[in-house]
Amino acid sequence: SEEELEEFAKEVLRRGITIIVNGIRITEVEIFVKVLREILEKR
Rank of each mutant, 00 (worst) to 15 (best):
L36S: 00
E11N: 07
K10F: 09
V29L: 14
E4F: 14
I20D: 02
T18E: 13
L36P: 01
T27H: 07
T18F: 11
E7I: 09
L36C: 00
G23N: 08
G16S: 08
E30W: 10
I24E: 08
T18W: 12
T27E: 07
E41V: 06
E6A: 13
R37G: 01
R43E: 05
K34W: 07
E7G: 04
E11H: 07
K10T: 06
R25M: 10
R37S: 04
T18I: 15
V12C: 06
E6D: 04
G23Q: 04
K42R: 12
I39W: 15
E30Q: 10
G16D: 06
G16W: 15
I19F: 05
F32G: 00
K10C: 07
L40T: 02
I20T: 11
R14P: 00
E38C: 10
L13S: 02
N22A: 09
I17V: 15
K34M: 11
E41G: 09
F32M: 11
V29F: 12
T18R: 14
I17M: 11
E2R: 11
V35E: 01
T27V: 12
V35W: 14
V33W: 07
R15G: 10
R15C: 09
R43W: 15
R25L: 15
S1F: 14
K42H: 12
F8E: 00
R25F: 06
E38T: 07
I19G: 00
L13W: 09
E38N: 06
V12F: 10
E28H: 06
F8C: 05
E38P: 01
I24H: 11
R14F: 07
E4S: 11
E6V: 15
E38F: 10
S1E: 07
L40W: 14
E2N: 12
V12E: 01
E7W: 12
F8W: 15
R25G: 03
R43V: 12
E6S: 07
L5N: 01
N22T: 06
E4T: 10
R15Y: 06
K34C: 11
I39G: 05
V29Y: 09
E28N: 12
G16L: 15
I19Y: 01
R43I: 14
L40F: 12
K10V: 07
L40M: 09
K10M: 09
K34V: 05
R15N: 09
V12Y: 08
E4N: 10
I19C: 00
E41S: 11
K42G: 13
F32I: 07
I31E: 15
L36D: 02
K34S: 10
K34D: 03
V21E: 01
I26V: 08
R37H: 04
E38V: 08
R43T: 12
E28W: 08
F32C: 00
V33L: 13
E3K: 14
V21C: 03
N22L: 06
V12H: 03
K10S: 04
I20R: 04
E4Q: 11
F32D: 00
R43H: 14
R37A: 04
V33D: 01
L40R: 03
I20F: 09
